[in-house]
Design a protein around this nucleic acid. Structure first.
Length: 727
DNA sequence: AGCACGCCGACT
DNA sequence: GTCGGCGTGCTC
């Protein structure tokens, strides 16, 4: 008899054995349907063995072995095993989480076999003069003309509404649907459009990366905004594609960076591109996953979840904006896709490129110590760096948060018909409303946070749990009718600018104005078409968009992060401000950046003005070393939540006692309430553990987790976060 | 996670 | 006398 060892989506750190008479070693990585308790479940085979690990009487037979489905290769399993071990997460849960949702439950729908091609009439129409007005139909015709056929997936990638346009083209007889030919190899033919001439540092970086194709090599590509990191990625990707390899490109949030996708598509026309991010529907996600897994997709562009996608011919991994915190999952399976990219590259002997203008200090440190190869792109390709200046302010004396020199600079740009961006990292009208008579503040009853005034919607909103209420007419505590908004958000700045510059066309860009699908794309078009004079927005605007007509960037209320309790706050602020500043002056004129601050002498601003990341990083690393913080130590966080804070703290106290028994070399801090102690009605607390040796910390965490798992965990729900990024 | 089993309060 | 509260324990 043969037995399979199966990982299931249960919060237990163990695998379950089932009998499967005809299973072979070839079935490792395949999905199975198994009986589990009273129900059935989907699992992934991790091992095949001649004898079970438990007594044979307890072993049940598998219900179905899904051999028609795609499977994880041994390479994929190796990465997932490492990640489950390292991040202290049950392997079965990790395996199931790595599958597209459609494959986690019932038998998945068969992959779509239909492909779409031009008919004779369609060819005639597509090659003649433009025959239809509808832009989506036109794009579809263009796409179809260059290829023998498009798959359903590729049709969807032409435009969000491409499906309807396709049906219209079928209806008028220009396009026909047929079944896919046997081999799906059309993506292998890789054509590359002309690349721009590289600068010497770009060329040197590209050569260094290319020299490692086929071997492990980790690179930090450190290049200021506009220095052409993307060209290096694309160049390296072209080389990997020429070698017949697949390329994985990870980006922070694909919805916010459509530009990279457009660039990739333009450079490699005809190359099948799979996209993987949480914005896709389940169906699309599955189709993209399948094309990646089958090898049909040569380039995969995705967010952190794409790190686990099976890629049989992977040859290169690129992590763009590697410092971005969205690569780290902060709930459940707390993996960091950037760090796993390096692991995956090392396991499969291929190069990985981490790119950023402001690398994470962990990454920078690795480059300094030689673990990673540092590649520098010190210069902008077509522009000079922006001139950054500080406007010292006294917040109390400000008119609605805007200093006169900034207003004057905006006026000057309006006169020159250049765009201005006012950056303020708070949405809403004001972060809180206050009663000056009794000191009452609008607080959320479910969270330890303030309710934000949204004047446009006449609401108070909690940005943490989503709770909404109306704006009170008078102070709920003392009845005083004069409630005052305190501080500024995007709405208030938009209103203030409208008063100062009634003739200016002002556009507010934050999560509230871009919630509607397509809204953000429409706004970008208006900005490109110069239908907007002043942009007011949050960090949504910081992510790699080119605004060629932007002359001035004004930054408000950045000071709040200078003196934060989180030791990573200044690193993040520097990265954010650098990114925002980089939006200015990308075309031919140098941009101007004005930062309003109460602390003009702060070293962060000094470093920012001089544009020296290296100097700032050196200062921070010196502090980190002295304080024994990462990257000089390694950390893990035990988080607990309960209905009462005392219960969460008591659980962590007992966890600390257990920890002290287990190890003397791991440092255990005191349990403390979380930064936002109450969130959506749950009280949260945490316990930090730290150790200079990653290996020692890992061994400790494994033993600790095993001890914590026994006994009553019902008083508090808990989870481990290895390498936490927020304390 | 589910879904059982199990031992104590207010209802037909 | 039962319906049901959620505390503890197991699932190959």
């Amino acid at each position: 008899m043969t037995y399979v060892r199966v990982g299931l989506d249960v919060p237990v750190n163990q695998l379950f054995d089932y009998s499967a008479p005809d299973a072979t070693i070839e079935d490792v990585g395949r999905r199975v349907v198994v009986p589990f308790g009273k129900r059935s479940a989907i699992g992934v085979i991790v091992e095949v063995d001649a004898k079970p690990a438990v007594e044979a009487a307890r072993v049940k037979p598998v219900l179905a072995l899904l051999r028609d489905e795609p499977r994880f290769s041994s390479d994929d399993l190796r990465l997932l095993k490492f990640a489950a071990q390292y991040y202290q997460y049950p392997l079965g849960r990790a395996l199931v989480a790595a599958l597209p949702t459609r494959l986690r439950h019932e038998a998945a729908p068969p992959p779509s076999q239909r492909v779409y091609a031009l008919t004779a009439a369609g060819h005639a129409a597509a090659n003649g003069p433009p025959s239809v007005r509808a832009p989506v139909r036109l794009r579809l015709l263009t796409a179809l003309r260059g290829r023998p056929y498009l798959t359903a997936l590729e049709v969807n990638q032409v435009a969000p509404s491409a499906r309807a346009a396709l049906n219209a083209l079928i209806a008028c007889g220009w396009v026909e649907a047929r079944n896919a030919p046997e081999s799906a190899a059309q993506g292998l033919a890789t054509s590359v459009s002309a690349a721009p001439v590289l600068t010497s540092s770009q060329a040197a970086a590209l050569e260094a990366i290319s020299a490692k194709l086929g071997r492990y090599g980790a690179f930090l590509l450190h290049g200021v905004t506009g220095s052409g990191k993307t060209e290096v990625y694309l160049g390296a990707a072209a080389r990997a594609l020429q070698h017949g390899r697949q390329v994985l490109i990870l980006v922070p949030e694909i919805a916010l960076t459509p530009q990279l996708e457009a660039l990739v598509q333009a450079r490699f026309p005809g190359t099948v591109l799979a996209r993987l991010h949480s914005g896709l529907g389940e169906r699309e996600r599955l189709e993209n996953w399948r094309t990646a897994q089958s090898g049909a997709a040569r380039i995969v562009l995705g967010t952190r979840l794409a790190i686990f996608v099976p890629l049989p011919q992977l040859g290169l991994i690129v992590v763009d904006e590697e410092h971005d915190t969205s690569f780290k999952q902060t709930e459940g399976f707390c993996y960091c896709a950037r760090d796993l990219a390096v692991v995956r590259a090392s396991q499969r002997a291929l190069p990985v490129v981490l790119g950023s203008a402001t690398p994470a200090l962990e990454t920078y440190h690795n480059a300094q110590t030689g673990r990673y190869t540092l590649l520098e792109l010190p210069q902008r390709v077509n522009a000079r760096p922006p001139a950054i200046a500080l406007i010292p302010v006294n917040r109390a004396a400000l008119d609605e948060g805007l200093a006169p020199p900034l207003l004057a600079a905006v006026a000057a740009r309006l006169e020159q018909r250049e765009q201005t961006l006012i950056f303020i990292n708070r949405r809403g009208y004001a972060p809180v409303i206050m009663c000056h008579a009794c000191g009452w503040l609008s607080g959320c009853h479910r969270c330890s946070a303030q309710l934000v005034l949204h004047l446009a919607a006449r609401e108070l909103r909690c940005h943490h749990c989503g709770h909404c209420t109306g704006v009170p007419e008078a102070c709920p505590a003392c009845g005083n009718p004069a409630l005052a908004p305190v501080g500024q958000g995007t709405q208030r700045i938009e209103a203030a600018l409208a008063r100062h510059f009634p003739q200016a066309r002002i556009l507010r860009i934050d999560r509230d104005t871009t919630r509607r699908r397509q809204a953000w794309a429409g706004m970008r078009r208006r900005i490109q078409a110069r239908e907007v004079d002043v942009l007011v927005g949050t960090q949504m605007l910081a992510k790699g968009h080119d605004f060629p007509h932007l002359g001035l960037v004004g930054i408000l209320n950045a000071d709040g992060l200078l003196y934060s309790a989180d030791f990573r706050a200044s690193e993040r602020l520097f990265a954010l401000l650098t990114q925002v500043a980089g939006r200015a002056g990308r075309a031919n004129a140098p941009g101007e950046v004005l930062i309003q601050t109460e602390f003009p002498a702060h070293p962060l601003y000094t470093a920012l003005c001089s544009g020296s990341f290296a100097q700032f990083a050196h200062t921070l690393l010196t502090e980190r070393r002295a304080a024994r913080f990462p990257p000089y130590t390694h950390q893990a966080l035990l988080r607990a939540q309960a209905t009462r804070l005392e219960a969460a703290l008591a659980f962590l106290e007992s966890a600390k006692r257990i920890g002290l028994e287990l190890s003397k070399s791991v440092e255990l801090y005191d349990p403390v309430p979380a930064a936002i102690a109450r969130l959506a009605g749950r009280e949260r607390a945490q316990l930090l553990v730290q150790c200079a040796s990653r290996r020692v910390l890992q061994a400790f965490l494994e033993a600790w987790r095993a001890r914590l798992a026994v006994g009553r965990a019902s008083v508090a729900r808990w989870a481990l976060d290895v390498d936490p990024i927020e304390l």
